[in-house]
Amino acid sequence: MRGVFYCLTLSFGFLASGLVPAQAQDGPPPSVTDPDRLPGVAPLPGEDDSLSPPMVIPPPDEAPTDNPDAFGSAPPTEEETAPDEDTRTADETPVQEIDRLFTELRRVADARDARRVAGRIERHWRRSGSATIDLLMQRAARAMTREDNAAALDVLDQALVIAPDYPEAWNRRATLNFSMNRLGKSLADIEQTLVREPRHWGALMGLAIILEQTGHKDKALETYLRVLAVYPALDSAQDAAGRLSEELLGPAI
């Protein structure tokens, strides 16, 4: 059954075509804050500016029914990434490198090797190209760790004022809205993430989780299969697709 999952590529169209779950429609995305508040980027209340956590704190490769800390896969371990941290050839652009890494990710069957490739892709996604955005993303991650949702939303809104084309800021806000059970807003942010990076398996996993939780299991299965078309070795997507396929279509003979 798993081999079938690997070769399927499904289109993302049910958000734009009006198939977003009705019970998830809780209003338009929140408006962004006044960019005039940005100069100086003051620390958040209770924040220790000496701390420098990673810009994004991805979750484990967990069961799809769990609320993720972020829509994304677990980062590879130090041991998995240390030997070949820089793989770009001399004449390869960043876009060419990430395209090559996605091709490699589709071909890797071993989960450990796939995590190494996925980790390199996620590092590309985290490169905003702006020190200000990187700082705001760090502060959003710290606020989310403290469960200070209001502060995290404020900082992410600021990041999106400055860099509306940065997919990880949309993905991070989608994660936060999901954790607050604001599913309509999370769906809107997921859609914005996928407009900018259609191969973002973390955003696709978030979309599939929401569709499954709101009873749209057929669309959830389609989305899990789309994850597997991008990242075939992702265990959580394999498990979810197998479980839903058996539930909707019956056990494989």
Rank of each mutant, 00 (worst) to 15 (best):
R127N: 13
T89E: 15
T89Q: 14
P58K: 04
W125D: 14
E62D: 12
V108N: 01
Q96R: 14
A90G: 02
P45K: 05
P64Q: 05
R116W: 05
V56N: 02
V108F: 02
P45R: 03
R127E: 14
V56G: 00
S128P: 04
P94T: 07
S52V: 09
P94C: 07
E79V: 13
E92H: 12
R107I: 01
P59Y: 06
P75F: 09
A114D: 02
P58I: 06
D61W: 04
G46M: 05
T132C: 01
T132V: 15
E85D: 11
P54H: 04
A70F: 14
P53K: 04
R88L: 08
R115I: 00
A118T: 00
R112C: 03
V95R: 11
R120E: 10
P83A: 10
S128M: 06
D49N: 04
D66P: 00
D48N: 15
S130M: 08
V56S: 04
T93K: 11
E122W: 03
A111V: 14
V108Y: 01
F71I: 02
A63W: 06
L51S: 10
V56T: 13
G129I: 08
D61C: 06
V95E: 15
P58T: 08
A70P: 00
A118S: 13
V56C: 11
S73E: 10
T89A: 15
G129D: 10
A82N: 03
E78R: 13
R115Y: 01
T132W: 02
E78F: 13
E80I: 03
R115V: 00
R106H: 07
R106N: 02
P53F: 04
A82Q: 09
Q96Y: 05
I121P: 00
E85T: 13
D110P: 02
N67I: 15
D49C: 03
E97W: 08
R126S: 11
R126Y: 09
E79N: 09
A74Q: 15
E97K: 11
E104D: 13
T89C: 04
L105C: 07
A109I: 03
A74C: 08
S73C: 03
A90L: 15
S130R: 05
R107V: 01
P53E: 07
P60G: 15
D113C: 05
V117I: 15
D99T: 11
A82F: 04
P75H: 06
A111H: 11
D84Y: 12
R112K: 15
L51F: 04
L101T: 05
T89N: 11
V56M: 14
R112P: 00
S50E: 12
V56Q: 04
